[in-house]
Nucleic acid binder design. Structure first.
Length: 475
RNA sequence: GCUGGGGUGGCCGAAUGGUUCAGGCGGUAGCCUGCAGAGCUGCUCUAUAUGGGUUCAAUUCCCAUCCCCAGCUCCA
């Protein structure tokens, strides 16, 4: 709708500034997001990244852009190889299990599917081609161990994303013992020569027997699906260096073109104020939380409701609060259905204009979702007031509902009011009996029936427009 | 160690050089309801880590201190 105005701004890691978003091709966006390494179940920190990217994509779509979204699946690296060997299953079988789990999880969290999910193992030829190009351009060399390395000293722009100066990288920070075959300690592997530890995981290629380095897959696959220069690349802040820095070095050295126009990085999640770590006992996968009985949509709301560039402190108290906030939005959606007033005299229309403007301006400003949600809740409160006064007409309620659905197309937390969920015959009869009792002012019977229904997971609410019911999860 | 981000009420989280520091959650009182639920309204007592400085005015800018987090080669 507002795509033509180009009013969206993002904080671009490349410049460390907020910039107006201008796509390469009007009305279209090429988006690449670093996906999971399928060696284990993804944890809630991973999902914060995927949810941020989902919000970004949905917002671009809200503003009328046609987004082509690519997310890679890293299915060959040290961790996947080690994992498969430990379980003594073929690599493909091992990664297939966690890939399947990943897709189940993103469905659970109501994350929209990307257009492409390229796997590293499915793009070996593309990677080989890219490495050959880098050798030809003089940016890569073969080490004594037979691996192909990227010579970062040849790429003058190295460090432009992370603002790291290569010669300041502390050698003392972390030095791997097996790196003596490289010309410089900071050089990274494009192609790793086979070693016995790799077992049967290798490809015979023009680069020799071995497997790809980690960074090359994202360069090869993003350019394959989105072109040599594309609009937006996202990932967690930890990927900024070295991964994304290396992607730039590989891609730009191969093509002599700018790789990506906008780099967006999300900050990490803390859990109860601490870094999430297995040894601290605060490490949670999505499945852990579902196992504790939490609503995945509450998890979605919580991880989405604060700004992506700020560290976010995950607590169970906040998760409960998120569930309640979602409940408020759902109650509102349900309430609209019963509206049958005579019209608000233009008040609803005015509120609708206001909330669309405020919500939109907030989201356009580097996805300031907290401010957008504040605008949304202000709106909900005001319309609830009008509903209390019974002045909202059916057609006004429909308009409100339509706008709420558009917002929810971005937030993805309300969903359809579940009317299809049929009441059991027993519950239906109990409701009818209760109505009869209420009519007869037999409150004792009516309350007993309400308690009985509640035990069946049916909450009944009496309203001016008649009885309303909803199903709740039995706990 | 070097580099960068951050510390806001009972909890989570916005925003800003200046009339009362969003919003959600929780608590509480009132309205509504047969009661409840949902909803609305009020309240939640000194909420901006600490100590200085600049300023007519700082939570916001500057300095110092404390604490948390991240990056420093394959962790979102």
């Amino acid at each position: 709708m507002n795509a033509a105005t180009g009013s969206i701004c993002f904080c671009n890691t490349l410049t460390r500034r907020k910039e107006k978003f201008v796509p390469i091709e009007s009305g279209k966006v090429g988006l690449y997001t670093c996906g999971p390494t399928v060696y284990d179940y993804a944890h809630i920190g991973n999902f914060r990244a995927f949810l941020f990217e989902d919000l970004l994509k949905r917002w671009l779509e809200y503003r009328g852009y046609k987004v082509t979204h690519v997310m890679n699946l890293t299915d060959v690296d040290d961790k996947t190889i080690r994992g498969s060997q430990k379980q003594q299953v073929p690599l493909e079988e091992y990664t297939a299990h966690y890939t399947k789990a990943f897709f189940e999880d993103i469905k659970t969290l109501n994350i929209e599917l990307a257009d492409y999910y390229p796997k590293a193992t499915g793009h070996i030829p593309e990677m080989v081609k890219l490495v050959k190009q880098l050798i030809q351009n003089g940016y890569a060399y073969k080490g004594q161990d037979g691996s192909i390395y990227y010579a970062i000293s040849k790429f003058s722009n190295y460090g432009k994303l992370s603002h790291i100066k290569v010669d300041e990288l502390k050698a003392g920070a972390r030095v791997k013992t097996d790196e003596y075959t490289k010309e410089e300690a900071q050089d990274f592997a494009l192609w790793k020569a086979w070693t016995p530890e790799d077992g049967d995981v290798f490809w015979e290629t023009e680069l020799g027997k071995g497997r790809p380095g980690w960074h090359i897959e994202c360069s090869a696959m993003s350019m394959k699906y989105l072109g040599e220069t594309f609009d937006i690349h996202c990932g967690g802040i930890d990927n900024m260096f070295p991964h994304h820095e290396n992607e730039i070095a590989q891609s730009e050295a191969a093509t002599s073109k700018k790789f990506v126009n906008y780099w967006l990085h999300n900050e990490h999640l803390l859990v109860e104020g601490r870094k999430m770590a297995k040894k601290l006992g605060n490490f949670y996968t999505l499945r852990d939380l579902l196992g504790k009985g939490y609503d995945p949509i509450a998890i979605r709301y919580l991880l989405l409701s604060s700004h992506y560039r700020a560290q976010f402190n995950f607590t169970f108290e906040a998760l409960d609060a998120a569930g309640a906030a979602v409940g408020r939005l759902r109650n509102f959606a349900r309430r609209l259905e019963g509206a049958d007033g005579n019209g608000s005299g233009g008040k609803v229309a005015e509120l609708l204009r206001g909330v669309q403007r405020s919500f939109g301006e907030a989201m356009d400003d580097d996805l300031n979702v907290s401010v957008a949600l504040a605008a949304l809740f202000d709106f909900v409160r005001e319309v609830n007031g009008l509903l209390d006064a019974d002045v909202v007409s059916g057609s006004e309620a429909d308009e409100v509902d339509a706008v709420m659905k558009r917002f929810d197309g971005v937030l993805g937390v309300v969903g359809e009011v579940a009317e299809e969920e049929a009441l059991s015959k027993e519950a239906e009869e109990l409701i009818a009996k209760r109505e009869a009792a209420r009519k007869a002012k037999d409150w004792a019977t009516a309350d007993a029936l309400r308690t009985r229904l509640s035990e069946l997971g049916v909450v009944v609410e009496d309203t001016a427009q008649g009885v309303r019911w909803r199903l709740v999860k039995k706990t």
